[in-house]
């Protein structure tokens, strides 16, 4: 107990990291499917929507949990980060709002408006993905202003959009069949290359921006153990590429593999970033411990989280089980 008490801020940073990683993977795939809808006709779009219909609401809730944990556990960091990112946050919210409602309006509105709502769904997904990547870029750059910093953040925006597109394509491979699945394989290959470029750019930029991060990665003997992260990531890229070259397959038993690979890829990338920035919560400005709020209140939240999170995991798994296999048409009856 005392061990936890002394390290409550670290525990909460861990919880927040799990929420953000869950968000990036889960909402990542449905934002990715949203962007890919630009490439489909109306009936393909309906099938693409059917793969994410039962899940997107819950996926987005991880963002509320992540930002909520930042707010309640690290109020000082929350204030700093959100003031820095005020405009991109507003634009992201605009994107999330448009796509969230377009999901309903695209089928319920008058026929003459349905295409417009499809475009709102696609545009909203793209806007949310790019602004999230832009914010990640600004965060990596320690919120410094300047042309190259802004350019990097913008590039990170497209990088994350590519990564979401990749996880979205692998989700479509898992949940569709036939021609749409074959197209998803092509989308996955293209976006995998873009994702690779984005991850390399971030991996190079991060240590260059901060000598502290450079030392963490490249000092002896850390480098021996840490080299496993980029090596594993590289191996994963290669295997995914080879695997995708052999898709689509006639037998569907391995259709989930690319999506699982994408999850692993996101997790490795996330671990790399987490290692770079620990113990800071706002790069070079504020540490996790310095930003944490009072311990009594964190205890109350932790008790609730420890009790409730297994239930959430359980019924989330149940929902994925209910809608397992290839997606069928979305029907209310």
């Amino acid at each position: 107990m005392e061990l936890i008490s002394n390290n409550l801020p670290i525990v909460f940073a861990g919880l927040m990291a799990i929420s953000i990683l869950a968000y990036v993977i889960l909402d990542g795939y449905d934002l990715g499917v949203g962007m890919l809808m630009a490439r489909g006709d109306r009936s393909e779009r309906d099938r693409m929507i059917a793969t994410i219909g039962p899940f997107w609401d819950a996926n987005e809730t991880w963002l509320v949990l992540g930002i909520g944990l930042l707010l309640v556990a690290f109020p000082a960091a929350h204030g700093l980060v959100l003031t820095e990112l005020y405009l991109p946050v507003a634009l992201m919210l605009l994107g999330l709002t448009l796509r969230g409602v377009a999901f309903e309006f695209r089928v319920k509105a008058q026929t003459r408006f349905q295409n417009a709502w499809d475009r709102a769904f696609i545009g909203g997904s793209l806007l949310a993905a790019i602004t999230q990547g832009y914010m990640l870029g600004r965060y990596i750059m320690g919120f410094q202003d300047g042309f190259w910093q802004e350019a990097f953040a913008l590039a990170a925006g497209f990088g994350l959009a590519a990564a979401y597109t990749f996880v979205g394509s692998t989700w479509l491979i898992a949940k569709t069949e036939g021609e749409l699945q074959a197209r998803a394989v092509l989308w996955a290959r293209a976006s995998l290359l873009l994702t690779l470029a984005g991850m390399i750019a971030v991996s190079l930029a991060t240590p260059l921006v901060s000598p502290r991060i450079f030392d963490r990665w490249f000092s002896f003997p850390n480098i021996i153990g840490l080299a496993s992260i980029p090596l594993m990531t590289g191996a994963l890229f290669l295997s995914l590429w080879i695997f995708l070259r052999r898709m689509p397959r006639t037998d569907h038993s391995l259709d989930l593999v690319p999506f699982l690979g994408a999850m692993a890829l996101f997790t490795l990338g996330f671990l790399g970033l987490a290692y770079s920035f620990y113990p800071y919560i706002v790069p070079e400005k504020l540490t996790i411990r310095a930003a944490a709020s009072a311990t009594e209140s964190l205890w109350i939240i932790l008790l609730g989280a420890v009790f409730v999170l297994p239930f959430i995991a359980g019924y989330t798994a149940f929902s994925y089980y209910v809608f397992r296999g290839k997606a069928r048409e979305l029907r209310y009856d």
């Binding site: 609401d57 819950a58 019924y315 929902s319 209910v322 979305l330 209310y332």
Partner: peptide
């Protein structure tokens, strides 16, 4: 989560 099951 249960909205998905309730709707579809």
């Amino acid at each position: 989560t249960f909205l998905g099951i309730m709707l579809f």
